[in-house]
Amino acid sequence: MRRGFRPGRPDAVRAGDIPTAQGRLHLAVVSDVGSRRAVGYSMAVNMAVRQVVDALDTAAASRSGRTAGVIFHSDKGLSIRL
């Protein structure tokens, strides 16, 4: 798979990860690859799809919902154009 990890500008490519749980919380993070900052996150006691959707929603809200053309790539190899 061809990965676009050199976007050249902020808000073009986003990436996500769900690290191993530490204690009782799981953290899902969406980061902007161009600016290298976290733009969305969600914490929960159970790891579930809803947690990832919530993290994507907070990332979209950080840009006033403007996600047209943004690519999201997960650490599991999933890439989608938002």
Rank of each mutant, 00 (worst) to 15 (best):
A21I: 11
S79Q: 12
N46Q: 09
V52L: 00
A21T: 09
R6L: 15
A59I: 02
R6V: 14
M43P: 02
A68I: 09
A68Q: 12
S62P: 00
P10T: 12
M1G: 11
S64E: 13
I80L: 03
G16Q: 05
A59D: 06
Q51P: 00
T67P: 06
R3H: 12
R36G: 07
G40V: 01
A61P: 03
V49F: 01
I71Y: 09
R66K: 13
R63D: 12
A21K: 14
V53E: 04
H26R: 04
H26D: 00
A44V: 02
R24Q: 14
K76R: 15
P7D: 15
D54W: 04
S74Q: 00
V70S: 07
A21W: 07
M1F: 11
D57S: 07
A59Q: 05
G23Y: 03
G4Y: 11
S42Y: 06
T58Y: 03
A44R: 04
A28L: 07
R2H: 09
L27Y: 05
L82K: 06
V49M: 04
G4K: 12
R14N: 06
R3T: 07
F72T: 05
D75Q: 03
A59T: 03
R14M: 10
A59E: 04
A48F: 03
V70C: 08
A68T: 13
G23H: 06
R37K: 10
V45R: 11
D75M: 01
I80E: 00
L56I: 07
A15W: 04
S31T: 15
A28W: 03
I71G: 07
N46K: 11
I71M: 14
M43Y: 01
G16P: 01
S74M: 00
V52P: 00
G4A: 15
V70E: 03
V39P: 01
R50W: 03
S42A: 15
P10S: 14
S62H: 07
R6Y: 12
G8K: 10
R36I: 05
R37I: 06
P19H: 14
D57I: 05
T67C: 15
V13M: 15
K76W: 06
Q51N: 05
V70Q: 05
R81M: 13
G23L: 08
M47S: 09
A68R: 15
A21C: 14
P10I: 13
M47N: 10
R50C: 04
G77E: 02
G16T: 10
T20R: 10
L78P: 00
G77H: 01
G8S: 08
R36N: 11
P10E: 15
